[in-house]
Simulated scan of single mutants.
Amino acid sequence: MIKELWNKYKDTIPYLFFGVLTTLVNIVSFDVLWHFLGWNYQIANALAYLISVIFAYVTNKLWVFNSHTNTWKAFWKEMGSFFLFRGASWVIDQGTMTIGVSLLHGNGLVVKIIANVVVIVLNYIFSKFIIFRKRD
């Protein structure tokens, strides 16, 4: 039964595991830059997002979707696609932060966590069905 579940969700389970780690990298980076270093929350959010995207690319490529590119062209295309779609989800993340913190005066850390939930779902869809899809 466990093997059957693993085979059915072999992309989803590691994605959730590394997604949690990526989220922790994002939130901890944001908190360190914002609270401890005193950076503006928008700049801290942008840099934290970049750090977490680099972490996510490596983990998604190697351990989640087990993607192997045979040429440099394929590698750059895959990585470019990954960063392009993560850039789109960053716009959503940054927009949520701006609305939640600047307009609604919410707690930055709480808003960051909410933004991450939305972004994780979108990033899974982008990764599974577009970026790391199996090509013939």
Rank of each mutant, 00 (worst) to 15 (best):
M97Y: 05
N45A: 14
I99C: 03
I130Y: 11
L5E: 09
N45H: 01
A48Y: 01
W72D: 07
I43C: 00
P14D: 07
F30Q: 02
G100S: 05
T98V: 10
E78V: 13
K61D: 11
T22H: 14
S89R: 08
L5K: 13
V101C: 10
F82V: 09
G80Q: 09
M97G: 04
N60F: 02
W76T: 14
V110C: 03
E4V: 15
M1N: 10
I131P: 00
M1I: 13
L109T: 08
N123Y: 08
Y124C: 01
A115T: 02
S89D: 13
I92E: 06
I92P: 01
V25G: 00
S102G: 05
F85H: 06
Y9I: 05
L5T: 12
L122W: 07
L104G: 03
H35V: 12
I54H: 06
G95N: 07
L62P: 00
N60E: 05
G106M: 05
Y41M: 01
F82G: 03
N70P: 04
V118F: 14
M1F: 14
V110Q: 02
T98C: 00
G19Q: 05
I113E: 01
G87T: 04
T12Y: 12
G100V: 05
S67Y: 15
L122C: 13
V121W: 13
I51W: 03
A44T: 04
F85A: 03
L109S: 04
M97C: 07
L21V: 12
D93W: 11
S52W: 09
F30T: 02
F132L: 08
K77T: 15
F36H: 14
P14Y: 08
K73M: 00
R86V: 00
V53Q: 12
G80T: 08
S52Y: 11
T23M: 11
T98M: 07
K3A: 12
S127L: 09
F17A: 09
N107D: 11
D11S: 14
S89C: 12
I113N: 05
R133L: 06
E78D: 14
A44D: 02
V53N: 10
L37T: 11
K128V: 03
